[in-house]
Write a protein that binds this DNA or RNA. Structure first.
Lengths: 195, 195
DNA sequence: GTAGATACATACCATCCGGTATGTTTTATG
DNA sequence: CATAAAACATACCGGATGGTATGTATCTAC
């Protein structure tokens, strides 16, 4: 079992993430955060040496979780099919499942949230964001490349642009869903787009 | 010609928008803003009665400009063709032109920026954002509906979902372009998606 | 030209902010 | 059970923040 300290640290991270997705990073003060947690300044600064440290830790965790989820999902997809197109469709299906299971107050993407106030963060934090996007792009491009090799499209395509398009659709859906309430359909819509 | 006061007011709005797109709304203080403008507190609070007033005015202007641009572009498209599909493609082309003309430090969308710290704003400000998205969705849905009537698709589609998909792609492209530098290709990519 | 409105500047304030110094309690370990 | 480290609490600080009160210059209209 996790020690008391680690548990508190996790609680801080979780609550901070919730609040940042609603108010933005600069819009969340440490005072507000610890008040909601029922903690004190001493407790917070015992776990994080600054607010920027919290921001870095938070986005690193988010990015790492995202990478792991992608790896696991891709592994599952590869186990279920040898065909790259089928793998891609399964992959999307798995993500669809996850987002369909989420309750109404739609969370949003922490990466996008950070990007919107990029200049607020130090270089290291910004680097984490960039790496995450480049990584996603690379993996998606690889998959799409495999698909277009096996199923030569009638029009010539740019796998990188297609990967970007997919990611854009993904991130944009978060924005819409937040302002309109629900847009999970969009994720499902992607499947129609593929051919 | 605009009076001196109106000019200053416009300068405040323009500079504020620039700064908010880089630092987020909460990340921009009035002190920082007026310092960059070479103004004083008195000047600012003469033009806006609070920071929230600035936020509201700013997003209203942005939304109104967006609506007008859409109307003008659609009118131009309708003048150039009677076919709804062609109109849609021309419309996209016009937007593509605009974004292709922008210089490297990619601005971003103020609406998306606000959405990321939605709880920071009063109900009226949030309402402006919601209305803007609903309006865009309605207009796009109408257009797509006309297209699918004239060119019955081989799979049955949901015009609303397609409109959402388009908007998502649009908004998401802003995020990617901001974190990776350039993604205007994505806009062009949309054209391939249509058929 | 002068009265009033508009457009700014100056000085100030209460509160909040991130951060620190220092204390107290709890927990793990020998 | 003693002890030290870890986990938290309390109290405080300098500066930033949004906002106000009040003054002054500039412009406009009669």
């Amino acid at each position: 079992m996790a020690s008391k300290g680690e548990e508190t640290r996790k609680r801080i991270l979780d609550t901070a993430q919730d609040m940042i997705l609603d108010h933005g990073y600069a819009g969340v003060s440490i005072d507000q955060l610890i008040k909601r947690l029922g903690l004190t300044k001493g407790a917070f600064f015992h776990h994080f040496k600054s607010k920027g440290d919290l921001a870095r830790t938070l986005i690193r965790r988010y990015a790492d979780d995202g990478v792991q989820l992608f790896k696991e999902s891709l592994a599952r997809a590869k186990k279920l099919s040898d065909d790259p197109l089928q793998q891609f469709l399964i992959l999307i299906g798995l993500y669809e499942e996850i987002f369909a299971g989420l309750t109404e107050p739609y969370p949003g993407c922490l990466l996008a949230s950070y990007v919107m106030e990029m200049q607020q963060f130090d270089v290291e934090t910004r680097e984490i964001i960039n790496i995450e996007f480049y990584l996603s792009r690379r993996e998606l491009t690889k998959l799409i490349g495999q698909i277009s090799e096996k199923y030569p499209p009638n029009i010539d395509i740019d796998p990188v642009a297609l990967a970007d398009g997919f990611m854009s659709l993904f991130e944009g859906a978060f924005i819409l869903s937040k302002s309109l309430g629900e847009a999970r359909i969009t994720v499902q819509q992607i499947r129609n787009y593929k051919n």
